[in-house]
Design a protein around this nucleic acid. Sequence first.
RNA 1: GCGCUCGUAGCUCAGGGGAUAGAGUGACGGUUUCCGAGGCCGGAGGUCGCAGGUUCAAAUCCUGCCGGGCGCACCA
Length: 561
Amino acid sequence: MSIFIDIQETLYRRLGEAAEKAKAAGELNYDTLPNYVLEKPREAQHGDFATNLAMVLTKQARKAPRDIASSIIKHLDKEGTWVSSCEIAGPGFINFRLDQNWLNSVIPEILSQGSKYGYVNLGQGEKVQVEFVSANPTGLLHMGNARGAALGDSLASLLTMAGYDVSREFYINDAGNQIHNFALSLEARYLNLLGKDVPFPEQGYHGEDLIETVKGIIAKEGDKYLNVDPDLRREFLVRYALEEKLTHIRETLEDMGVHYDVWFSEQSLHDSGFVQDTMEELAKKGYIYEKDGAQWLKSTLFGDEKDEVVIRSNGTPTYFAADIAYHRNKFERGFKKVINIWGADHHGHVARMKGAMSALGYDPDNLQIILMQLVRLIQDGEVVRMSKRSGQYITLRELMDEVGKDAARFFFVMRDPDSTVEFDLDLAKKESSENPVYYVQYAHARLCSILRQGEESGIDISVVPEIADLQRLDSPEERELLKKLAELPNEILVAARLMEPHRLAHYIHDLASLFHSFYNSHRVLVDDPRLRGARLSLIRSTKQVLANVLEILGVSAPERM
RNA sequence: GCGCUCGUAGCUCAGGGGAUAGAGUGACGGUUUCCGAGGCCGGAGGUCGCAGGUUCAAAUCCUGCCGGGCGCACCA
């Protein structure tokens, strides 16, 4: 229950009803009510809400929008909507002003709901899965993974706040060609370190971290695998290294505040025969054919640019085959909506993955793929080229050591995934106020400081004021702050619907700004106990909202800085 | 060549078909006997890449062009 959403939904419905009544009265002519919006106008002088209903009706009604607007207003039932006045403005907007007493319920609502404030039941408990990062366990985490972690985890939190039953999942690519290359690389390092002069594989992983891993193995096991069957040697090396890498990935993500519900092994899909079963299923439906000794999926039937190989001519399944099985498995586990976060360099994979789901009989719209542009790292004013193969990159671990979890997460999650992020390492290292996370956190710390001082001087800060006192929060600064606080549930609703957590980062930045403005023009700890109580409750509410949103973004809300 | 994506203030970026396109940052000016100045207030800064089209209304949707990024393997 949210006062803001309640007013908006009620008024929206009443507007439709008013149009119907105007039609019944012969004042307005139309067949079907077109889509219209009721929203908070950008300009405060345009009131609390505005609708374009009259303008979208002009075509069907063949009347001037302002005339339509006056008919609608005439038939509008304002009972229980808090609307105190309506006016026709501009080309035909209807602007609504609310009785400012609607704000009286905002603070009690926030304080009674606490950390639940902002929750909306958009999802109605629907099971959704967010799969993100899923980095190859052959190396360290990089900037792209960092962005994926921040985005995926925040999206999952956001959807939880919007009433979905969310599961976070990491897909472990522990099978296939790259693991083979990984094994060869490990073997080469192992033999090199033990004095054997063997060439490094062409497709190998050059990362320094790999040498460290192998050194660790030698320290533990010595040259035990120097003169054994190469298959045995590689199997041991891979098993050891994979576990070490995965542990490292898990710990790094935990440090970033990311906790997965499921770690899903690709290899398990092969071991259980599910990959094979899925290919047989596709073949049964007639979507598989053979060419040049390989098995191909007719993915062009579903919008792909070209058909794709699923089983190589040597009999081994491709990564794509395993991925189809994996996504089939997700739907079989009962997820209604499956969300993947991929780097934009994988965009070519989207059409065929959705196509494969169609082929299996699933609605491809239930597989939603969010593509993020890759991160461009700037150091010393120059772009840092990053490549796993060459082993040259700044790791997520290093980023966190430099700028900290809060700055890293906020910085990534405040951007639209579609935009390329320029992450200036030098700037981020400065921990200067240029980083907006400090601005928001500072507001939170300042709020805590006021409450602390109140308590220290013996004031009971936990009182929820009576309405008569809340009505004294009537300055422009207080009202704007209250309105912003009231909007959180709607912000959650919109952000969840669009799956855009970056909106929340902007929301709390705006909120922090409104608070700072309020702070500069009004004292909280005044002598008048009733006014003081009202302002303290406003402060507590603001703190609560900041904390709730920071929680979604995975950024800490410090009491002191 | 084909496909996806982006192009908005000096820089980094917001902007759900709507009214006078916003914020941060940088530069400039003001602000501190008073709850945290890491703050606040102010002015300056724009042919929303270009050209058409759809619409009562386009930064937003469509088409073409220009420019950047990324894909187009029996790699993942």
